[in-house]
Design a protein around this nucleic acid. Sequence first.
RNA 1: UGGGGUGUCGCCAAGCGGUAAGGCAGGGGCUUUUGAUGCCCCCAUGCGGAGGUUCGAUCCCUCCCACCCCAGCCA
Length: 556
Amino acid sequence: MADDNKPLNFIQQAISGDLGTGAITKIVTRFPPEPNGYLHIGHAKSICLNFGLAQQFGGNCHLRFDDTNPEKESEEYVQAIIKDVQWLGFQWHGEVRYASDYFDQFYAWAQHLVCEKKAYVCQLSSEEMRKNRGTLTAPGTNSPFRESSVEESLELLEKMKDGDVAEGSMTLRAKIDMASPNISLRDPVMYRIKKMPHHRAGDKWNIYPAYDFAHCLEDAIEGISHSVCTLEFTSNRPLYDWFINSLPVPSKPRQFEFGRLNLNYSVTSKRKLKQLVDGNYVDGWDDPRLPTISGLRRRGVPAVAVRNFCDSLAVAKTDGLVDLSQFEFFIRDELNKNAPRAMAVLHPLKVVITNLPEGHLEQLPAPCHHELQLGDRNLPFTREIYIDANDFKEEYSKKLNKKLSPGRRVRLRHCYVIEADDYLKNETGDVIQVNATLVSETLGKDPIDGIKPKGVVHWVSATNCVDCDVYLYDRLFSDPLPDSGDKDFLEMIEKESLKILTNCKAERSLADVEIGVPYQFEREGYFCKDSHSGDSKKIVFNQTIALRSSWTDILS
RNA sequence: UGGGGUGUCGCCAAGCGGUAAGGCAGGGGCUUUUGAUGCCCCCAUGCGGAGGUUCGAUCCCUCCCACCCCAGCCA
């Protein structure tokens, strides 16, 4: 996975240095999601980074749920996240871990800090605390409870834990420096009261540890050597180090921050994704238009494509905005190499090959892949077939010389050459049938008269095919930056982002394909059977991505 | 405005004092029973700006500019 020729990024350099000096003998990383939503492509970058680092340097990577806030967390998210990490192809070391497993230790350490006079119970309300915190330019002022006795704080902390005091009435705070230019250090909250059951700890606790207090200790308990997080935590690092250095922890992890992944035309914010799901703007967390891992999976994006994309991204301190086209490249790259080929007609137009007898049936072998040895499948060739309406033009034109038109020829893919004679229209003026002649002896050969067709067209037997619906997806947002602050991202939802084609015809072999396994529908794109197809009799195919095209068709 | 971080091609980026890698996108050409794929070529006298140090600076120094993060009992 990691390319040996690639220069080491700054985290790899640090690890390599630590290993070189003997500061550590084995690296341990971790992926620490909060179970408050589904994973998305941004998390994939973090997953690939953390698991990749461990792999590369012969260490371990843990999967640990940072479940310190029962208000937002649930078992549903835990299960979804576990499934997504596995699907991406990673296996964590040991059991799945939970911050909640360490709650007793956290509490003991909190008491330890109180005894050391490095923490105190503060009875300021949240509004008062906010006022006392100062501003970016003005220092804060000390809480009146800052010098409470050890005994008093210990006693109040116990009461907080036992649920004897009201929510919001007090907190446990670290005693650091209310005048620090770094606001994270202005006596941060360590524990807050939440009289709420926890998805794993049940009713045991009425207080829950805050991120800054908990996260560094979770890392230290697990012996994490390199704690990798995103840029916005940079100013929290001094606090991370403060707890580590103030407590008798078993190890001293170091925090490194990298720039998170931003993709244009996408939202990668759990809050906004949840809004889209809860507001029914999309079909659940796994809607194929979402950049969630489950959405990508449902859409047919292979895990290896996600990994390759993430590995192509630099680990740096710049927060860049990556072009969707860069992701699409890796999707197509993987699919082109490995997806079996098949044919399906999305806008069926009947073609009657008049010089073939009624009931003509010929099984034509067609390779499932042009390079891979995937074998052949048989295509039933009959007198009536469907081609795509876009591949027939009433008038020939030089620009469209690969299309079928009266008097012109086209090669049916893996089949014969046909020549159009005439066509029928309905009352609204749509072409509804083309009559054509098969040019003899053109199976695997050019016509003997030397008139070689310019175009190749995909087709399906009209009498031996399966009906299906095809869902075409476009970007969910019309704006390249739906996520950027001031605008309302819900107003930028692209109304046409889902187009449903209900009259599609697919070759027989596509009837029983496995859900989620991508196929290339030749000349159209990559598709997979939808996981929600089960509801109706009809098969639903999701378009993973269209083929790259140097051609822009006039019709769609 | 205090603190922290970042600025190299449209996008992502390497570069660690010796004279601007690579990928994506884009343009051109060849091949092709997928207008796909593959292959070939083109695409920064320039590294946020201005000074300075040096034989030599994207890399060092100074000042300036822009953008991002921090004032949740969220993570």
